[in-house]
């Protein structure tokens, strides 16, 4: 085998291990540098969490990955191709579920939107919608309008609509930020079980350091002004995670300490 061929193979193998890549990505908006020289690789099937102080650029980084923003310089690639626009295999779960759902469509109608966009034939939609509602724990709520549902149910519905896209990647921006602690823990476990089984890649932005460690394979801490990586932690906690056992694990407490110290140092 020639050297060139071997090099190509090595490069292909490396590319295979990266699904989303930020390569020295910089974004300026309104004369302000919001993200600077961000280098970050997300592996396929990985659960990556991003934490950081408010306003440090977490949402902006996610929007770059989604193709809702284009980098001013550098590049963002998905599966080796530059990201120029949103794509159907990448689903975005917005924090403000109330604004992301269509208030004039029922739960079933909201999920149907994604199926219609993917040109799923009308007669197949009903069964798919049923299955998705069951998957996110909303069976029997097909006919309800979003305004008739609690916050947790609305966020479940948005997740169901994202799953209807059959995404290989989920980008989630503080999806549980507005929910109470009990609902949040339930949804954390649901998202884990939904994504681990299907090997879905997840980039998960959160304010909650415990949540980041509990969910992630890796946690990235961003530094503000401009946004860049300040800390990177590999989370070697056993899976499946458990709300009590994982949170009492000595490694969990150690990582938690490390992350808290980092965040405290960035806020003053």
């Amino acid at each position: 085998m020639s050297v060139v061929a071997r090099l190509d193979e090595a490069r292909a193998a490396r590319r295979q291990k990266t699904l989303i890549a930020f390569n020295a990505a910089t974004l300026r908006l309104g004369g302000k540098t919001i993200i600077e020289n961000l280098d970050l690789q997300v592996r396929p099937g990985e659960f990556l969490c991003i934490v950081g102080a408010s306003g440090c650029g977490k949402t902006t980084a996610l929007r770059l990955a989604a193709g809702l923003y284009r980098p001013t310089s550098g590049s963002v690639t998905f599966d080796g191709e530059p990201v120029t626009a949103p794509r159907r295999e990448v689903a975005i779960v917005f924090q403000d579920y109330g604004k992301a759902l269509l208030p004039w469509r029922t739960a079933a109608g909201n999920i149907s939107l994604a199926l219609e966009a993917a040109r799923v034939p009308a007669r197949e939609r009903g069964a798919r919608i049923e299955a998705l509602l069951r998957k996110v724990g909303l069976p029997g709520h097909a006919g309800k309008y979003p305004t008739e549902m609690s916050g947790g149910m609305q966020q479940r519905l948005q997740i169901a609509r994202c799953l209807a896209q059959e995404p290989s990647t989920l980008l989630m921006d503080e999806p549980f930020g507005a929910l109470d602690a009990m609902t949040r823990q339930g949804l954390q476990d649901e998202v884990l079980s939904l994504t681990q089984a299907s090997q879905t890649t997840v980039v998960f932005v959160t304010h909650d350091l415990d949540e980041a460690i509990y969910l992630g394979d890796r946690v990235i801490g961003l530094l503000p002004h401009p946004g860049r990586i300040g800390i990177e932690l590999d989370i070697d906690l056993p899976r499946p995670r458990d709300q009590l056992a994982t949170r009492e694990h000595p490694e969990f407490l150690r990582l938690r300490r490390q992350l808290f110290d980092f965040i405290k140092a960035t806020e003053h």
Partner: peptide, 8 residues
């Protein structure tokens, strides 16, 4: 943005 991500 939802519509864009669904490529409607």
């Amino acid at each position: 943005e939802v519509a864009r991500s669904l490529q409607m």
